[in-house]
């Protein structure tokens, strides 16, 4: 996933980070999904072919599939599906199995399945029960935690906190923790590529300059503050400092 800032019109001072939802290398195109909830993006959505939007990017660190991953679990809510697009495409193109667990308030806010690849397993949870499981999307995660070799969560801080909390307990529950953790620690010292944390997250956050300069978008990391626009927006869960209450 990449990050892209797009010039805002009028008096909205900041650019908007917009995730690249799809990449068509043959045609040289990228797909952006613009939330109608943000005052700056309807302007952008009304641009026609040939208009100039003055973007900066792609910026930031993208999501990556671990080489050993066969089963990829995606967890998202509301409008946070687009950042997972390129990863999903890449995983399916390389023959991996992908499941997307999506949470929304109601059926009306569920991400349309017509925009998702056919190969994807799509499971929906709605708060009001109007579609799929009634309740939080986090309720669906335990059923998939043993199946998935790698998980990626995209959404607001509350969702990410809960998924990160679940992920911390996963290794212990499955009894695969010790070996993996030790390897990971040794790897960090020697710089060798080793087993990474099971969960990655994509933070959705307004950023200031998007170039790593203004330090407006920092979040607490495991070893000091990290910038969402530069070190992120994709992080391994163990790179961030999660609140203990989660």
């Amino acid at each position: 996933m990449h990050f892209r800032g797009l010039g805002p019109p009028g008096s909205l001072p900041l650019r908007r980070p917009v995730a690249i939802a799809g990449i068509d290398r043959k045609r040289g195109e990228v797909t952006l999904h613009l939330p109608s909830t943000d005052a700056a993006t309807p302007w952008l959505a009304m641009r026609r072919a040939g208009d100039r939007a003055d973007p900066i990017g792609p910026l930031g660190r993208p999501l990556a599939i671990e080489p050993r991953t066969h089963h990829l679990l995606l967890i998202a809510e509301g409008l946070s599906v687009p950042p997972l697009g390129p990863l999903t495409e890449a995983a399916i193109a390389t023959g991996r199995r992908v499941a997307l667990l999506l949470g929304a308030r109601s059926a009306a806010e569920v991400y349309p399945s017509s925009l998702l690849p056919d190969e994807l397993e799509y499971v929906v949870a709605t708060q009001d029960g109007s579609l799929g499981h009634r309740g939080s999307v986090v309720d669906l995660v335990p059923a998939y935690e043993a199946w998935a070799d790698q998980a990626v969560a995209s959404g607001g801080p509350a969702l990410l906190e809960r998924v990160a909390h679940l992920a911390r307990g996963r290794d212990a529950r499955l009894g695969v923790a010790c070996l993996g953790r030790r390897t990971a620690r040794r790897g960090r010292r020697t710089g060798r590529v080793t087993r990474r944390s099971w969960l990655s997250v994509v933070l959705e956050q307004r950023v200031g300059c998007a170039l790593g300069v203004c330090l407006g978008c920092v979040v607490p990391g495991a070893s000091g503050p990290v910038r969402v626009c530069r070190e992120g927006p994709a992080f391994r869960a163990d790179e961030l400092a999660w609140e203990e209450s989660a």
Partner: peptide, 21 residues
């Protein structure tokens, strides 16, 4: 510096509390 969040867009302006990191 300050704890996050450090920035918020407000009407015609930017509210910031970066905290001089």
């Amino acid at each position: 510096g300050s704890p996050p969040p450090r920035m918020a867009e407000v009407p015609s302006g930017l509210l910031h509390a970066i905290g001089l990191p």
